[in-house]
Simulated scan of single mutants.
Amino acid sequence: MTPRFDLIGIVVSDMAATLAFYRRLGLEFPAGSEDQPHVEAALPGGLRLAFDTEATISSFVENWEPPRSSGRISIAFHCETPAGVDATYEELVGAGYHGELKPWDAFWGQRYATVADPDGNGVDLFAPLSTPAGG
C-alpha cells in the first residue's frame, strides 16, 4: 500500500472569520459550518482543505498550544491574470484583511502578492506575467 496525499489541515482561532476569508477566494462550505469544530472544502484534483478549531485540536493533543508566531505554511491561489491578482488583493485588503506583500512582478515570471488569513497564514495570489506561445 502507498499512502495517498489527501488533505491539508489548518488550525483556526475563529472558524467563522476563517470561512468568510476563504469564501472570498472561491472555496465553498456548507451553510452553518461557522459553528462546527471541523470543516472541509473540496479542492480541484480531489484534495481537501480542512479547518479545525483550537478547541478541537486541544481535545486530543495533550498540552497543545497555538504557535506564537506565524506558521510555516502558505496556500496559493491561481488568479489567471496579473489583473486578477491585483483585483483579488485589493478586494481582500479592502475587506479588512492584512496585506503582507503588495502585488509585484516577481523575477520568476509571475504577478505575485500575499494576504494573511485571519490566523496569520500567508495566502499567496499569483498569475503568469505572460501566456506561453501556443497557450
Rank of each mutant, 00 (worst) to 15 (best):
F5A: 15
L49G: 14
W64F: 15
W108F: 15
I73M: 15
F77C: 07
I8A: 15
R4T: 15
V12G: 04
I8Q: 14
G94S: 05
T56H: 15
V123H: 09
A31E: 13
S69R: 04
E62G: 00
T88F: 01
E91Q: 14
T2R: 13
R4E: 04
P66W: 02
D86S: 09
S13T: 15
L47G: 12
S74D: 06
F21R: 02
P66E: 11
L7M: 04
E91G: 02
W104P: 00
G134Q: 12
H98F: 03
L101G: 02
Y89Q: 06
A83C: 04
T18Y: 08
A20N: 10
I73R: 09
L49Q: 04
P103G: 06
A106K: 00
S130K: 11
F29Y: 13
T81N: 11
P30I: 01
S70V: 03
P128T: 13
I75C: 09
P82C: 03
S74T: 10
G99L: 12
F77D: 11
T53N: 04
A41R: 03
T81I: 01
L47W: 00
G99V: 07
P128I: 09
P118I: 02
F29G: 01
A95M: 09
V11F: 02
G94N: 04
Y22W: 14
G120V: 01
S58D: 06
S13N: 05
P66L: 11
D35S: 12
A83E: 05
G45R: 05
R4W: 00
E80N: 11
R72I: 05
V39S: 10
S70K: 00
R72T: 13
L47S: 10
D6S: 15
S74F: 15
R68L: 13
N63H: 14
M1R: 00
P132H: 07
D52A: 14
Y97A: 03
H38T: 09
E65I: 03
A106L: 07
I8G: 07
T88G: 00
R24W: 03
R24K: 10
D14I: 10
L25I: 03
L19E: 04
H38M: 06
A133E: 14
G120I: 02
T53L: 10
D35N: 14
L47P: 00
P132I: 12
L49P: 15
T131F: 03
L49D: 14
H78Q: 08
G32S: 02
